[in-house]
């Protein structure tokens, strides 16, 4: 297999046979760049944050996917990883952080709590039932309680796949 076919974005570019050049469109280059350089927000809400931290550390190395630059400001981020239980007290804060992120922006709901409320779904007064309940569109759901770092990396790869397959129409 040629090297060019092994890279995930190989469908976006076409190699000219026999030559050292390839053809693509500027939209495709942009999508490739967006998918390969996701800047997540430092945003841990509960125990899933520990797994997210482990994903960022050397053993799992989220930097391999170009998503290792965790920023402390939403204005410098592309992807919000909602890692943990969303308490009702945190609702407004999450909505504001999402609104502060510049376009294009993506959301990963990590763990059962961020997906649907998880173990706090029943008989709980203080927990929001998932990221959707806040009106925030979620791109990738990662189930697990908590998901292992491999699951988060898989979710990240799914998000990259989604970005690479976006339609060219403006968002």
């Amino acid at each position: 297999m040629a090297i060019i076919e092994r890279i995930p974005a190989s469908k976006l570019i076409h190699k000219i046979p026999g030559g050292g050049a390839f053809l693509t469109t500027s939209e495709n280059i942009l999508k490739w760049g967006k998918a390969s350089s996701l800047w997540p927000m430092t945003f841990g809400l509960a125990c899933c944050a520990i797994e997210m931290i482990a994903t960022g550390a050397s053993r799992f190395d989220i930097d391999r996917f170009g998503a290792g630059v965790f920023r402390a400001s939403p204005r410098q981020c592309d992807v919000m990883i909602v890692a943990g239980t969303i308490c009702i007290k945190m609702d407004d804060c999450i909505r504001r952080l999402y609104a502060q992120m510049p376009e294009p922006k993506y959301v990963i709901a990590m763990g059962n709590c961020a997906v649907s409320g998880g173990i706090f779904y029943h008989d709980t007064y203080s927990v929001t039932k998932g990221t959707d309940a806040l009106g925030i569109p979620v791109d990738v759901y990662i189930p697990g309680c908590p998901p292992r770092p491999e699951n988060l990396l898989f979710g990240l790869m799914k998000l990259q796949e989604k970005i690479r397959n976006e339609s060219d129409a403006p968002k």
């Binding site: 007290k89 029943h122 008989d123 007064y125 203080s126 039932k129």
Partner: peptide, 22 residues
């Protein structure tokens, strides 16, 4: 623990909330 504008007291047995899923 709860927000300052919270109504009622959630650990009372009589507590109920429209968002509460039994």
């Amino acid at each position: 623990l709860n927000p300052y504008d919270w109504k009622e007291y959630p650990l009372r047995k009589s507590y109920s909330n429209p968002r509460f899923i039994t």
